[in-house]
Each structure stands twice: as structure tokens, then as C-alpha cells.
């Protein structure tokens, strides 16, 4: 399969802060890739490099075999703007017309608005839209030029459950028709629902790059759930959670944990061991990282300004 977006040994610095550290990543035609990572991990910087907003300090970034800074290359991609920055005085249809005028093969404005449930709002000024409506408009803009690949940076943040499902269906049908997607999200549920491949970044590096299933397995994190009173100190526990009278322990070594639990003589009942969700796996991967390196405040600041 053709590689649509590629970064090879890419490093990007902002002053002394290393936002990306020798990142190599290939995204092939037809893939739906989820990009995961805490704030300041380098997600936005990576997307900014792929869409031509920034240049790497070293290494190379390719988009459709060319440079992302070439406008002709960017005809093939769609990007979501941050909904907070949409021009307030313009009307919804005016913004869509303006954006789609940049693309040779465009979707008719009424059709695009209908697809994202904005048909009734075409004549409204953006300043009068709700947060959710702005978000949907922002996502719609990514699809205005019939792109081959879209970069969706947190497409459903701030949407209610129903609107989120509708948007997911939209992304899925784009993907089923052969479209390629790079998606970032705060909702791990979203990545699990949509993505086949997950790339976890932290501190500017790729920590894991595999299928959703494999990322869960690779960390081997399990969730041990039981009903018990006060538990003793147990080995390999990454996280503890109490819900509905049950205690949930996230661990890398459920066998040893259970052995130690039994040895301690603590009474318990209703023991369950399950594979983790992606969220738990993600927390496990990034918490291993955090212990070895502190997140710098500068990194968080640079994220503010680099957001697409």
C-alpha cells in the first residue's frame, strides 16, 4: 500500500524544548490511525508537520510523496480547525464556500452541511452557534475538498453522545470509501471505536505503534476486580479504583498479585480478571514514561500555540 504521510527521523525543537525526538512514522493509504498521548506529548507538533504548518528541525516529512509545504500537495488533505477560532462574523455557508473554493473537486455546500447536520444553520453567523455546532462545522470543513486523507484533531471534544455517534458514522463511511484518517482524541473510547492502528506518543517519542488489540496486549496490563475490605500492599499495581462496592486493580502481573493476595490472608470475594481497556493500557504506557522523565511546563505552553 502507498505511504501517504511519512516522517523519517523527525526532530522538532522549540528553543530548548524537544517536542519531537527522532520520530519515524508511515501512514498508508486506507488506514485509520489513532494518535494518543497526554498534553504536551508532541501530537499537535506531529500533525502540524504533516500539514505543512511547521518545518522539522531535522529529518524529513513527506505527504503524498512530496513536501507538505507545497500547496498542490495539500489539495489531497483535509484538516479540522480549532472551533474556538472560527471567524465570528461570517455565516456558516460563507465559511464553507470560502474553504471549498480552494479545492478543485469540492462537495456542494448544502450537501456537506446536511451531512454534518448543519443544513438549517447555513445562514447563521458563526458567533451565534453553540459549541457543538461549531465543532461539527470545523469537522465538516475537513471534508469540503473531497480529501484522500484527513487530519482530525479531537473531532468530537465537547459533543454530546448522539452527535458524537453521528460524527463517528461519518468518519467510518469516509474510511470505508477508501479515505485515510489520522485522528487524535482525548476519548480513548473514540480511538477504540474507530481506529485499527494506534500510535502512542509521549515526550516526543513513539512509545507504541500497533493494532488496538496489540497495544492492549503489549503492555500485558490486566484488571483484577474483587470485593474486599482494606487491601494490603500488593505487587505490580499501577492503579486502584473503587466503584459499586468493588475494588479494581490494574496490574502488569495478575498471577503474582493473586498469589500475594491469597498469602496475605485478606478475605475477598467475587474475583475477576479481565483484559484492560485501551485507556488502561495507555495509562500504563505513559505512566512508565513519566517516572523516568518529568513533563516540562514549556512543552505544555508550546502546545497552546501549535494547535491546528
Amino acid at each position: 500500500m502507498a505511504v501517504l504521510a511519512r516522517s523519517a527521523e523527525v526532530t522538532r525543537r522549540y528553543g530548548d524544548v524537544v517536542a519531537l525526538d527522532r520520530v519515524s512514522l508511515d501512514i498508508r493509504a486506507g488506514e485509520l490511525v489513532g494518535l494518543l498521548g497526554p498534553n504536551g506529548a508532541g501530537k499537535s507538533t506531529l500533525i502540524n508537520l504533516f500539514v505543512g504548518l511547521r518545518r522539522p528541525t531535522s529529518g524529513t516529512v513527506e505527504l503524498f510523496g512530496g513536501s507538505p509545504r507545497d500547496p498542490l500537495i495539500r489539495r489531497h488533505v483535509g484538516v479540522t480547525p480549532q472551533e474556538t477560532g472560527l471567524p465570528e462574523v461570517l455565516r456558516v455557508a460563507e465559511i464553507v464556500d470560502f474553504v471549498s473554493a480552494h479545492f478543485p473537486d469540492r462537495v456542494a455546500t448544502p450537501e456537506l452541511l446536511d451531512r454534518f447536520g448543519l443544513g438549517d444553520l447555513a445562514k447563521r453567523q458563526v458567533g451565534g452557534l453553540s459549541g457543538g455546532q461549531r465543532r461539527r462545522l470545523a469537522v465538516a470543513l475537513a471534508f469540503a475538498g473531497r480529501p484522500k486523507m484527513v487530519f482530525l484533531d479531537e473531532p468530537t471534544t465537547g459533543l454530546d453522545v448522539e452527535a458524537r455517534r453521528t460524527l463517528w458514522d461519518g468518519v467510518r463511511s469516509f474510511h470505508e470509501e477508501g479515505g485515510t484518517v489520522l485522528l487524535t482524541s482525548h476519548y480513548l473510547e473514540e480511538i477504540e471505536a474507530l481506529a485499527q492502528r494506534v500510535v502512542v506518543v509521549g515526550h516526543g517519542r513513539v512509545l507504541a505503534d500497533d493494532t488496538v488489540q496489540a497495544v492492549r496486549d503489549v503492555v500485558g496490563v490486566r484488571r483484577v476486580s474483587l470485593v474486599a475490605g482494606t487491601l494490603p500492599e500488593l505487587p505490580g499495581v499501577l492503579g486502584v479504583e473503587h466503584a459499586d462496592g468493588r475494588t479494581h486493580l490494574v496490574t502488569t502481573d495478575p498471577d503474582r498479585l493473586v498469589v500475594e493476595l491469597v498469602r496475605s490472608g485478606t478475605p475477598f470475594s467475587g474475583l475477576e480478571i479481565r483484559p484492560t481497556t485501551l485507556e488502561e493500557a495507555f495509562l500504563a504506557i505513559t505512566s512508565q514514561e513519566t517516572t523516568s522523565k518529568e513533563t516540562t511546563s514549556e512543552e505544555t505552553t508550546s502546545k497552546e500555540s501549535t494547535h491546528v
Binding site: 500539514v51 500547496p71 495539500r74 480552494h102
Partner: peptide
């Protein structure tokens, strides 16, 4: 200084 400006720069235009 507006995020919208970043978006405009991703559109296919010099």
C-alpha cells in the same frame, strides 16, 4: 495569533 490562521495555512494556497 488566532488558531483560524493556522487552519488557513493548511489550505492549498500559497
Amino acid at each position: 495569533e488566532q488558531p483560524w490562521n493556522h487552519y488557513l495555512r493548511t489550505l492549498p494556497a500559497g
